[in-house]
Design a protein around this nucleic acid. Structure first.
Length: 211
DNA sequence: AGCACGATTAACT
DNA sequence: GTTAATCGTGCTC
């Protein structure tokens, strides 16, 4: 099994909307300390863009909590919310401009046994279909805030994988922004790819197990 | 110093 | 569809 290249900083150092769209289909990988790969293909993202965006944490200016958003593209912005949940964002655009893409869902690919353990109380379909759920599955927490995913030795990164064609991408408003004002509340900055697109159609060793 | 609330999840009626 | 869980953060007094 050959390894695909990791996404470079030039991928993240672009318009946040482009990055959010293009991340669909790409593979989020966590390398555990024993070398085990736990990964999934990204199927849902949201863009948060600058201090004017009322839905973006950067709206309140630079604080201890949100400082990672001002970092260079490819930096992780991991924050804690609701007293119990961690969320993973990937910082975009130029160094000094606060913007990031929230990863809201992945389709499990590798390390399934570990994911099953970490998400043991929930059915397969709901292992990684939410921003806090995927952080549970990959054990991503505050120590990852500020991590450079483009550093050659980072144990968390995004690997190149097959793109998702435009015809399959659903674009709509971001979710969970209850008290956010218009026009920000309704900006179509959420990108989704359907789960069916990621099912393994076999073709290699598992033809016999299909059908 | 106090307080309202959150880029959510899981359990429950 | 409704709601408890659970606490750091940012804003007001």
């Amino acid at each position: 099994m050959f390894m695909k290249p990791r996404l470079k900083r030039s991928f993240f150092n672009r318009s946040t909307l482009d990055v959010a769209r293009e991340l669909l289909g790409q593979r989020l990988v966590k390398l555990e300390s024993n070398g085990t790969r736990v990964s999934g293909r990204i199927c849902e993202t949201e863009a948060y863009i600058g201090m004017k965006d009322d839905g973006c944490h950067a709206k309140s200016g630079l604080t201890h909590r949100n400082r990672s958003m001002w970092g260079q593209a490819g930096t992780a912005y991991v924050y804690f919310t609701y007293g119990m949940h961690w969320m993973l964002n990937l910082v975009t655009e130029s160094d000094g401009f606060p913007a990031a893409v929230l990863l809201r869902g992945i389709i499990p690919q590798e390390g399934i046994e570990l994911i099953a353990q970490r998400r043991a109380t929930q059915p397969t379909d709901h292992w990684t279909d939410g921003p806090a759920k995927l952080c549970q599955a990959l054990l991503i927490h505050g120590e990852y805030d500020g991590l450079d995913l483009c550093h050659p030795q980072a144990n968390l990164f995004v690997e190149q994988d097959d793109k998702i064609a435009d015809e399959f991408v659903t674009i709509g408003p971001r979710v969970g922004l209850n008290r956010v004002e218009e026009p920000w509340k309704s900006k179509p900055w959420r990108f989704q790819a359907p789960v069916e697109l990621f099912v393994d159609r076999g073709g290699r060793d598992n033809d016999a197990t299909e059908r």
